[in-house]
């Protein structure tokens, strides 16, 4: 098992390549998912503010 992970004498090269791919692709995939959440929050807040302002106008 350990021998398999060592990849001959190239373990460091092989594993760093796959690890980097995992990190980069993971970041690229999860960043827009986080962005989506913040867009939903931001817009919800904006609409609430707008609704609030329009009721104030009506009262005046």
């Amino acid at each position: 098992m350990l021998e398999m992970l060592q990849m001959g004498k190239y373990g460091a090269y092989v594993w760093s390549s796959y690890g980097l791919a995992l990190i980069v692709m993971g970041y690229v995939a999860f960043k827009p998912l986080m962005d989506k959440k913040s867009i939903f929050k931001e817009l919800a807040m904006k609409y609430r503010r707008e609704a609030h302002q329009s009721t104030i106008k009506e009262q005046k």
């Binding site: 690229v28 995939a29 827009p32 989506k36 867009i39 939903f40 817009l43 919800a44 904006k46 609409y47």
Partner: peptide, 29 residues
Amino acid sequence: AVVLVRARNKVLYTDQNSGWVKELIKSKN
């Protein structure tokens, strides 16, 4: 998959003043 997620975010943001986005966000809330 990733390009669609990114594109949806952009569409949502640029269309934020149209009715369907407002409805969508309100129903989620």
